[in-house]
Design a protein around this nucleic acid. Sequence first.
DNA 1: TCGGCGCAGTAAAACGTTTCAAAATATGTG
DNA 2: CACATATTTTGAAACGTTTTACTGCGCCGA
Lengths: 342, 342
Amino acid sequence: MMGGMTTIHDVARRARVSIAAVSLAMNDAGTNRVSASKKKLILEVARETGYRPSGVAKALSEGNTHILGLVVPMRAQIFFNHFIVEVLAGIQACLLERKYHLMIYSHSTSRGGITQGEMAQSRYADGVIVLNTRLSSAQDMLDTIQSLRNASIPFVMVNGRPAAEDIPYVGVEEYEVGRLAGDYLIGEGHRRIAMLGGAMRSPGGQVALQGLTDACREKKLPGKYPLHEYTEFERGRIGQTVTEWMKGKYPPTVIFCDDQMAPEVYEACGALGLSIPKDVAVLGRGDLALGAKMIPKLTTIRVPAMEIGRLAAEMLIDQVEQPQAAIRQVLLPCSVTVRESV
Amino acid sequence: MMGGMTTIHDVARRARVSIAAVSLAMNDAGTNRVSASKKKLILEVARETGYRPSGVAKALSEGNTHILGLVVPMRAQIFFNHFIVEVLAGIQACLLERKYHLMIYSHSTSRGGITQGEMAQSRYADGVIVLNTRLSSAQDMLDTIQSLRNASIPFVMVNGRPAAEDIPYVGVEEYEVGRLAGDYLIGEGHRRIAMLGGAMRSPGGQVALQGLTDACREKKLPGKYPLHEYTEFERGRIGQTVTEWMKGKYPPTVIFCDDQMAPEVYEACGALGLSIPKDVAVLGRGDLALGAKMIPKLTTIRVPAMEIGRLAAEMLIDQVEQPQAAIRQVLLPCSVTVRESV
DNA sequence: TCGGCGCAGTAAAACGTTTCAAAATATGTG
DNA sequence: CACATATTTTGAAACGTTTTACTGCGCCGA
């Protein structure tokens, strides 16, 4: 196999010391377990032979790999989801600091490929971040949680708050998302609000709708509003819904939808000859990078995706390194990013 | 550490056989090294104890981890680059089939975090895919290649063809990209073509420009064209260049630019009151997902990103599994995805 | 009945580290 | 100098697998 890989033995031999001494010298953390002179010698030999300790051997010996897994829905298109991508960026930032590696897993066996089970059971990861999206079925999630529990692998869920309180979780307070959207839009003078579900079809989406509804009720808006509709992300369905709404007798003055749906909403409005935000406003949810590139630039409820990722990684590592640590559920606050579409 | 993890020893003890028997039974590939009855027993015990072989131990023993590394520029924003994301999707698809894991690395030490060196030297990965982007400096690349060579870790480069022929590489024929763009645009009646560099500032970009220029020369277009300019991706610079061009005496009739620059080109044109494709056409390069969402939908030179990723992974695994395999450089063909912007 | 052969099963070495406990050496004290 | 104590160094076990070479054993043919 690895033909000429230098091992700790090679270094020990050339430096005329024991392998223990080499190990000690390499991992020295201030505690002087090895004399200065010898350490200098060993480090020198290590440098000139290009020795690097084997992560695998280290992992086997120490009992942990310093690898974290990211469990995401298996679909190949996964990374086209900007939300995920931003969460990933946050995770990555944290791992770089904490010197952990990141490994990508997929869950759901539906497509007949390698299942999360088979892959994860190699047990490379010290812990995993389970990323919930509208692509992941509730059943997948439960299965995943169950199997992680069984294998007693630490994990943190992201996005899609689990029913149980004893499951580590990072996300946003969905109710507040709806509430914030409602208060903001009403403050801007809107009375006829429509909400386009999708990402919101999840339990979290229901809660957001509740928040929006409460905001409307509180301000005594006409009973019919907020309108809402859950459309799949399939191309066409969104435009269809928007068109129906706008052709109604009292069309909404603003459409509240996921950032990723916004381009199609724009398109549908354009096709109807409606200008944004003059004829109808659009409020996004997410504050993904693409929003700032749209014309007009998308006003949106900011979901702090990077922070979510970073925090999830942080929590997971804490949990891995000290298993007795308390389990937390953290809900980050949202805010409105005001641009041009409302 | 992992408190109650069942090991091969536990299974062996409970089944009253040797650990060798367990290993043999688990990894059986048709060759009957263990009797049917014993095998049945062992598998049964393994099932009921929930035994899963440790990937780490297996890796140490076998000398390979079945992990592939993906080396990308360190910037946290990395995944906002759609090209990378699509390549990644292709890689992932291949790895699922071939039962490999994917680990994410970053190169460049400039930000002072963990360097690719430190991380990669843990030597978890059996091989790595090095993803070149305009974010990665040529020096980074050379360093990376050098250190991989030193450590004799198999690798494949993607995007940004290396000068040397003996470096495994997957990408597109940049000259053909320019050529294709030129032929297509001229065929559509355009005579004044402008090319906006950026991703094209790389050596590959120069070659693409050459292809475009040759196409123009061949058709005897006015000597001044194609125009070209290399702008950084910074916000504002693109619009500025476009504005200068369009205000010139003989403004280009079409702008050829990277897909990811297109939104800003659209915006600049909008600000100038120019309508696409009536007043000026826009041709992208990439065929990233976002192009189909723009209004009007972007016509673009398709770079088969997913295929590139898939092929890179395929080649790398082949190389890992049979080191004597020949080194290949593969250049995939491009095509024009016709939509609405030309 | 014996030798040879194939088959099922196993002991032990190997993979490259860390770490524990013991050994060796140095340092200090009376 | 003898002894206790501190420091440095090391041998060996442990981590959980795979794999190689060997041991029994039953069966066959002579």
